[in-house]
Design a binder for these strands. Structure first.
Lengths: 156, 156
DNA sequence: TCGATGCTTGACGTTAACGTAAAGTACTTG
DNA sequence: CAAGTACTTTACGTTAACGTCAAGCATCGA
């Protein structure tokens, strides 16, 4: 009745390799039964693995996911540890948002540079006599906020 | 006139170790001058290093940052490569936003569980006779959207 | 009975980004 | 001149999360 899986079966279902599943077991994250020597995964194991992979996608390490699972398994009186877990997740979110903001800024910088370069190309295409214009400096000075990423780098 | 630095000086200014700076050099990301055998970093080098560290903070590998810097240095006619770089940054942003969304969802789940656990504790404190209530299941069913992360795990 | 599969357990390889000695050189200060 | 300090290069160590053989049972169909 209970749908059972072999390593490779379940691995494929989950989109990972059998090696990974064995590795997770080695790390104590899952403990499938055995039929003789062969691993046999149940629906529960599959759920656990799904949680593990999710944690990974969220950027947590296997060790962290392990603790995570322990909490899921633990009796619910562990409100204290629950708090800590929630805080950890919130930290992670905060980190990601910082990164996102930084990236957003960088993206804007790059977009400006890109457009400047584009204009530069257009100019060269339109006016075939322009004798090797002064690269990006002047162009950016006209349109952008002359943000020069870090100061010079290209200078003398 | 030009403020110059030794490895350790600059490393400290940048909040990294001298080892890191030497490593970056080994990887071809910077090429400080030498005074005899000793490295001498200029303002330009400092700028470059700042860019490198920034790239790292943004979650890019040193190799990626290297290509990045090459573009900064390259002549501005590389609009094509510029495009690719911008796309890469956009990809990264997209990735981060996906992660953020996933995390947001997870956070909500966890918060619910946390609150349920809290209520559970409160109940135990208030009603000292409650004979070991049915853990989280029912509680969550009442308040949350019964999102059960992955199905069972805790079941029989 | 013979392969062909599929599973098992080692166990070493890999990548990134440094950490951490080890051993030697150079300058300078008491 | 001996210490001390800062620098150098060389090179092995580390962590994470597997990848990639290697060698060996076990089972199954023709």
């Amino acid at each position: 009745m209970e749908r059972l899986y072999t390593v490779t079966e379940l691995a494929e279902k989950l989109g990972v390799t059998a090696r990974a599943l064995r590795f997770y077991e080695h790390k104590g994250l899952v403990r499938p039964q055995r039929a003789g020597n062969n691993r046999v995964y149940t629906r529960r194991d599959r759920g656990r693995l799904a949680l593990i992979l999710r944690g990974k996608r969220l950027g947590f390490s296997l060790r962290e996911v392990g603790e995570w699972l322990d909490l899921y398994d633990a009796d619910p009186d562990q409100a204290e540890q629950m708090h800590r877990l929630v805080e950890k997740v919130r930290d992670r979110i905060a980190t990601l948002e910082r990164q996102r903001n930084d990236l957003e800024a960088t993206l804007q910088e790059l977009t400006e540079i890109e457009q400047a370069a584009q204009r530069h190309l257009d100019a060269k295409a339109g006016d075939c006599k322009s004798p090797d214009r002064e690269s990006l400096g002047p162009v950016r000075g006209k349109g952008g906020r002359s943000h020069t990423p870090v100061g010079g780098l290209k200078d003398a």
